[in-house]
Design a protein around this nucleic acid. Structure first.
Lengths: 187, 187
DNA sequence: TCAAAAATGTGATTTACATCACTATAAATT
DNA sequence: AATTTATAGTGATGTAAATCACATTTTTGA
């Protein structure tokens, strides 16, 4: 069976065995336990992670220390703080593990190298970036036009697994409602 | 004086005179009057626009016909419906002119050609896409963590010009509040 | 395995904002 | 210049959701 990362990349571009080996050689595996961080506020993020196993939350703390969920990510999703990673400035967010996790990560330098040496991978990430932008656009639209109940139903429809794996209060935060309100929406 | 589009591109990559001429040869100018559309729901968007003069709104109509502003754009900003343009699927949004406008546009085919023939420009757009994504992330954060009043103040601080050029009810829609509420926030 | 911590549900109360209704300006359009 | 149309301000009222408070259940880690 093909490597899962290869399958993932080949959804967008085709790779020979040699090419994939070359790509993979730029990644390193890393495991983290539940509650461990992969990104913390204040640090310049040096790595982009591809999740092989587990589930993470990326979030922001406001002045009162209240947590606002930016997004979740799980198996076969990419995650990092793109603002920090792309601009190489200190991060304003945290990303931590909601379960024991396994990642493949690529460093900033290796990603630079890989895209320079292998134009296909530049195209891969360019497309990922475009798709990411479109997904964010949709979320903004949803925040503007849908009620809390509608956003809840849409999320439940799109990612039912999330509701099994992630505490409801985090889903509430992602949707932009209080946990009490979310609890009442469910019924 | 350098062409304004050149100045704009050179904020990210450097170009020789010949290179810029080559880039520019892939663009066409077009003028539109106030209230004219550059993107309409249902059409597959074939062009990306760079605004040389004027101001536009991109928006979505919900089932009740209520308008939700996705974004504004003005001089030296890029605008199109990226979902439709990138995926070449029918658009769900409208973009129309709030003033008489002048654009330089590049067709989907020419952008493809230009990025294929000139790697620098691929990098330019890749970077633009990354920055666009980061900006959207910030807006989501603002919708989650800031009150209507805070979002109003932030927008006023960041784009004071907008409040001179754009009807308040559109700004209200962009912020996700009713025009009555926006009116009361101002004081 | 057992205490502590985290997550969840639900009532009571408060609040920010939407909606409705009407008036007053301002700006297009003929 | 005159008439229509769009924009803007403001009071009254309604409502969705936040907040507060507390009980119950589940999870977790020592």
């Amino acid at each position: 069976m093909k490597h899962l990362l290869r399958q993932h990349i080949e959804e967008i571009i085709d790779l020979t065995d040699e090419e994939f080996d070359f790509v993979l050689s730029h990644f390193e595996p890393v495991n983290k336990r539940k509650h461990q961080y992969i990104v913390q506020e204040g640090e310049v993020v040096k790595k982009e992670y591809w999740i092989t196993k587990g589930c993470v939350k990326s979030y922001f703390l406001n002045d009162d220390g209240k947590e606002h969920i930016l997004r979740f990510a799980m198996e076969h999703w990419w995650i990092t703080d793109y603002e920090s990673f792309v601009k190489q400035i200190p991060s304003k967010i945290y990303i931590d593990c909601l379960e024991d996790c396994e990642f493949l990560y690529i460093s900033f330098e290796n990603r630079d190298k890989l895209t320079a040496e292998m134009h296909k991978m530049e195209r891969f990430w360019a497309k990922k970036s475009k798709f990411g932008r479109i997904a964010l656009q949709k979320r903004i639209l949803s925040l503007l036009k849908n009620s809390a109940k509608e956003r809840y139903d849409l999320l439940l429809e799109q990612y039912p697994q999330l509701f099994q794996r992630v505490p409801k209060k985090l889903i509430a935060s992602y949707l932009g409602v209080s946990r009490e309100t979310l609890s009442r929406l469910g019924s």
